[in-house]
Amino acid sequence: MLIINNLKASIEGKSILKGISLEVKPGEIHAIMGPNGSGKSTLAAVLAGREFVEVTEGTITYLGKNLLDMSPEDRAKEGIFLGFQYPIEIPGVSMVNFMKTAINEHRKHNGLEPLSASDFLKLMRDKKELVEIDSKLANRSVNEGFSGGEKKKNEIFQMAMLEPKLAILDETDSGLDIDALRIVANGVNKLKHPDNSFIVITHYQRLLDYIIPDVVHVLYDGRIVKTAGKELALELEEKGYDWIKKEIENNVTA
C-alpha cells in the first residue's frame, strides 16, 4: 500500500528526516515510536503533504502512485487520513458543513452523487455512535472551544466518516485521560479491517495496550533505528529510549 524509500526531508534548510524506508501492507498496523524531536511528526506531515517540509531525496509510492506529486486534498481523496497532533480550530465553520463538504468531495472523486441531507445526517449519527462522540460537538464550529480530549475524539470521528485506506495518527494519545484513550483506541479497532492500514505515531507505549501493532519502528534522529514486532514497544516501555540511544552509540563506536 505504502512504500517509502530512502526519504530525506528538511524544514527551513534543517535536515530532519535522514533516509527513511518503510513498507506498509494492507491490513497492517504500524507503530512509530521515538523520543521527542526524532522526526515522527515531520514524517506525518510529509505523508499528508504539508508544504513547509521540503523533501530533498527519496520516493513515496502509495497504491502504485507517486504520492509526492499529489496535492493534500487529492491524497485525502485517495484515502490518506492524518489525525493531527494539534487539530486546528476553525471558528465560524460548522462541523456539519465541514464534514458534508469533505464527504461529498470524496464521493465526487469516486464518481458518486452527493449524499442527500438526510442520508448525511444519518451517517453522522451512525459514526458518532461508533466512536462514542458526544452529539453536541457536531453542532459546533470545527474544534472551536473543544477540550484536548474532544479534539482528539473529533479526529477519530472524522476518520470514521471518511473511511480512509491509510490512517496516520500523529500522537493521538497525547493529552488524553484513560477514558478518552479507550474511546480513541476502540474507534481505531472498530474501523480496522483487512483492506486498510494504520500508522500510529506515539511517544508512549500506553496506546499500544489498546491498539495492537503488527510492526513497531523506532525513529531516532531522522532514521528508523530498530524495527520489530509488538514486543519492542514493551521493551521500550521498560528500558526507555536511552537504551536505544546507547545501542546506537555502541554501534557507532564499534
Binding site: 499528508a48 503533504g49 504539508r50 508544504e51 496535492s71 493534500p72 486534498e73 491524497r75 485525502a76 481523496k77 487520513f81 492524518l82 493531527f84 487539530p87 486546528i88 476553525i90 471558528p91 465560524g92 465553520v93 458543513n97 465541514f98 463538504t101 469533505a102 468531495e105 470524496h106 472523486h109 464550529s141 470545527v142 472524522q158 471518511l162
Partner: peptide, 21 residues
Amino acid sequence: FYLQSRGINKREARLMLMFGF
C-alpha cells in the same frame, strides 16, 4: 491545510474559511 487534508480542494477550502470568518 486542515481542510485540504480532509479532501476539500483549495478553492472550496478558502471559500469555507471566508464563510466561517
